[in-house]
Design a protein around this nucleic acid. Structure first.
Lengths: 342, 342
DNA sequence: TTGTAAGCGTTATCAT
DNA sequence: ATGATAACGCTTACAA
């Protein structure tokens, strides 16, 4: 059995309340006794039981992070930052992966209540949560890289994200301005409407339209190439499949850097050169893209800022603050995977 | 205030013990009462307070995973698997990143005691833990990709890893057999002795020695290129620095795939071609290496198996089983980043 | 088969 | 300034 506050009290010849006061620097304790108790605490390797604390305080110090696709390197950097901030504030971060077909908010509701989380962060996923769900959750929550539907009161949740439609437009526009007309798009079809995925695709469509380029479905990844996990392999297969349909395409926009890198490898496997034969632009700004050969042109999301704002918003809500919403701008980095054509 | 077991008992007109029995399917409860209580539980949206449970049980259903370098993509796949298995068994996985200069076991001891973990997994880190520390931890623990010193009783911890010295040897030997003699080594110097890092380096040295190749420190990454986090940039800088010292080198062994990819980019930046001018072999087997151009030759660790064995060993210990130890074999994959030379 | 009551380790209230 | 003591919500002897 671990050593308790009562053991300390006994050793010090004082009451438990006094020890508690020393521990928490609360209330009156004579300097003499404080020193004595403290020294006993120190060399007793006493560690307060956080369960008892939480029981007493009616709240734990756990934060649940529900990630749709935890292996996504873009999420990873953010998770690391969030975790660090949690530790700094004495909270534990419980990270939980959510499978593609699972509803992240439902899972958060279940686990949140069961394990006494004091706050929830949802990273990735869809945009279609209902107001009822937030009420049912009854916990401070921050949506990261996503948002809730327009019909949900913004007071019920905080959110930090980029404008996916706008940035998708930016990526496609970039290629168009470089003179490209036959531009492919690789993403995860099937979950079009209410995801980051679908919004960026809409941006791509708008850019085409605006430039008078007709939409050609053969240039877009079809569901036959889509798997549940949109990893390198998805990009690889999608690029090969699009190229086989449209060998005259000159550029590809990918929904994520991982997809873009997979696509580049797919193009290489076909004997093509980048950017000489085909230009590729990605999304996110992961390190692997920077170190690829050629370095990947990409729409960089400010991952660090997004992560910091998210955890800040959450703590603010935990302390009783209002919900907050923030939309960051993404930046297009030109590094070598795209080329101007005539 | 949330609804408690006492509220349920009152509503059902029974004692709290009966409700508890229904909740946990333990002890005798008449079918009649069970049904009644259950229905009340159901439409009361009652959720047991996990803190009270844990306090009572002297340990929660939490497992602590302490990762030295959580952004390492190789670790990531394993974390995902471990997390999934935890959820399946009704445990929560608390993932905690450990900074380079922190002692992972010490942190585990602190947090473990404080928050009533029921088991601990250490991923990455060093090999020099003392028997005292394990005793102090007093919790089931599994070391993943690492081990404890030879002076620590194997009964105190489980471990799952590969033979790093042997596999380091394998990587270097591979290049030697391809005819290379001037072979660089990129790793994280400074933490040589008791880490995965150092062991692979020893394997490299043994391979050289065995083939009568003199050890040349100019071919090895020096500490000036090392940063705390051994990411892409470290590999990038190390490769450039080694090349500037020894432009006649023909091969490089990197301690990890991330380092290897960074190194390749560094070589590309110098106008070199891979594998035509220089061969590169990595370590781990991450996806990014497979999709790099050229695909990275690497010593693949069986990440899935390692993860599964780890969590299995931990649960076995939690249930009172003995400590177990397992050393997996790694496999060298030849994919295109190495070339035979005369 | 069921209910009462004693803890689990804290903190906070109240006397002293 | 300090020390009993009563919660917090749960499980589990033990009694009925």
């Amino acid at each position: 059995m671990a050593i308790t506050i009562r053991d300390i009290a006994k050793k010090a010849g004082v009451g438990v309340a006094t020890v508690s006061r020393v521990l928490n620097n609360k209330g009156y304790v004579s300097e003499e006794i404080r020193a004595k108790v403290q020294s006993i605490i120190d060399d007793s390797a006493y560690i307060p039981n956080s369960n008892a604390k939480s029981l007493r305080a009616h709240s734990g110090r756990n934060i649940g992070l529900f990630v749709k696709g935890i292996t996504n390197p873009f999420f990873n950097r953010m998770i690391r930052i969030i975790e660090e901030k949690c530790v700094l504030r004495g909270y534990m971060l419980i990270v939980r992966n959510v499978d593609e077909h699972e509803n992240e908010l439902e899972i958060a509701i279940q686990e949140g209540r069961a394990s006494g989380l004091s706050g929830v962060i949802l990273m990735g996923g869809s945009f279609d949560y209902s107001e009822k769900q937030f009420v049912r959750l009854g916990l401070p929550i921050v949506l990261v890289t996503i948002s809730a539907g327009a019909d949900v009161s913004p007071a019920l949740y905080s959110s930090v994200l980029i404008d996916d439609e706008k940035e998708g437009y930016k990526a496609a526009k970039y290629l168009i301005e470089l003179g490209h007309r036959k531009i492919g798009f690789i993403y995860n079809p099937g979950v079009e409407k209410t995801t980051t995925n679908g919004l960026r695709f809409q941006g791509y469509c708008r850019a085409l339209k605006e430039s008078g380029i007709p939409y050609n479905p053969a240039l877009v990844a079809d569901s036959s190439t889509a798997t549940l996990y949109t990893g390198y392999a998805t990009g690889f297969n999608a690029a090969r499949s699009i190229y086989s349909r449209c060998p005259d395409l000159t550029g590809i926009v990918a929904f994520s850097d991982v997809l873009a890198l997979g696509a580049m490898k797919g193009l290489f496997s076909l004997g093509l050169r980048i950017p000489d034969n085909i230009s590729v632009v990605g999304f996110d700004g992961i390190e692997a893209g920077e170190y690829y050969q050629p370095s990947l042109d990409t729409v960089i999301q400010p991952a660090g800022e997004i992560a910091l704002s998210s955890i800040e918003f959450l703590f603010s809500m935990i302390l009783g603050g209002e919900a907050q919403h923030l939309v960051y701008d993404a930046v297009l980095a030109r590094r070598g995977s795209c080329k101007r054509i005539e």
